[in-house]
Amino acid sequence: MILIRKLLFPFAILYGFVTAIRNFLYDKAVLKSFSFDVPVIAVGNLSVGGTGKTPQIEYLIRMLQENYQVATLSRGYKRKSKGFLLANSKSTVSDLGDESFQYHTKFHNLQVAVDADRVNGISQLLHQTIPPQVILLDDAFQHRRVKAGFYVLLTAFDDLYIDDFMLPTGNLREYQSGAKRASVVIVTKCPIDLSEKQRLEIEKKLQVKSYQKLFFSSISYDEFVYSETTKKAIKEIKESEKLLVSGIAKPKPFYDFVQKDSDEKLTFNDHHDFTESDIDSIRNKSKGKIIVTTEKDYMRLKGKLKPEKLFYLPIKSTFIQNELEFINTIKNYVEQSTRNR
């Protein structure tokens, strides 16, 4: 795989050239961007997959929903529906995609919308009977047709964008210079015991601009796994015989947290659409044991396996330091933007 990626280097140069021209045209206003009269926060990354966008979006939802009517808008990756769709009581994971369906399931006062055309999606949201007061754009850092008021750029601790290269040789969607659009940069998935030396080394490598702020976060796991009707303590789960199933970009931390040496694992591609054959394979592999999966995968597996056998492990984004500064930065933007309307 590494050799193939190296052989595709000329295509990476071409892809980088095309994205650079596109960004240049947006920067010079040759291609039009649309702004909106409502606080819009875009969360995304420069690379494909595995930077922790979902827990970061959920962090922002929890922070803002007490004081504002919040909406999320994403394209709804791998959904079966088309165009603009606002989630309702009858919406399914096929309608919304796994991440949006997860938001819809967890946050009952949240407006969850999907639309590949973010400009149209925001316009439709603002024409609802109760329009949102804050809109969170999920995975929209490269969606230049919308000019968000605030950009949150995520980069994983073990896969910093500064060390990466353009697709398909590397994993970057655009050149590293795209980071200049960020309002804040968050280094995600850091070890909880991140040292001062490690932090300073990353600060030196990233060299964020004077108008940007740099934060560090880690992934914290829940103390329980949950089924449709019950929960089990992690300590009990770690000691139990089980089958682990994942369809996320980087499943190793999940496996490391819950597995015992004898546990079997079934690993699928990110956002995998589980087929009947896959479900049969999971049933056969589990042999009556409980099945533990990620929360995102649970959204796609729920209803296809026995509910008393299927459990999921929730995760959260946790700031290692300066959390209050991050909260105040977001709230100040929202409050100022709201006052300026």
Rank of each mutant, 00 (worst) to 15 (best):
I2V: 06
P10W: 10
F11W: 13
I13H: 09
G16T: 06
T19L: 02
A20C: 07
I21E: 04
F36G: 06
V38M: 05
I41G: 09
T54I: 03
T54W: 01
L64F: 02
Q65K: 15
E66L: 10
S74Y: 00
L86Q: 00
S94H: 12
D98Y: 09
N109I: 08
V112M: 09
V114C: 04
R118F: 00
R118E: 00
R118Y: 01
V119M: 01
G121N: 00
S123N: 13
L125A: 01
V134I: 03
D139T: 13
A140F: 00
A140H: 01
R145L: 11
V146I: 03
D163Y: 02
F165K: 13
F165A: 13
P168H: 06
G170V: 11
Y175T: 14
Q176S: 05
A179P: 08
R181V: 03
V184Q: 02
V184L: 05
P191G: 04
E196P: 06
R199F: 07
L206I: 15
S217R: 12
I219Q: 06
V225K: 04
S227Q: 09
E228S: 13
K235F: 11
L244T: 10
S246M: 03
G247P: 06
G247M: 05
P251C: 06
K252P: 06
F254W: 11
Q259Y: 01
K260M: 12
D261R: 15
D261L: 12
T267R: 14
D273F: 12
D280Q: 15
G288W: 08
I290E: 04
T294D: 03
E295Q: 15
K304W: 03
K309W: 05
F311K: 08
L313P: 08
F319E: 09
I330E: 05
K331L: 13
Y333H: 13
Y333E: 10
E335P: 02
T338N: 10
R339N: 11
N340A: 15
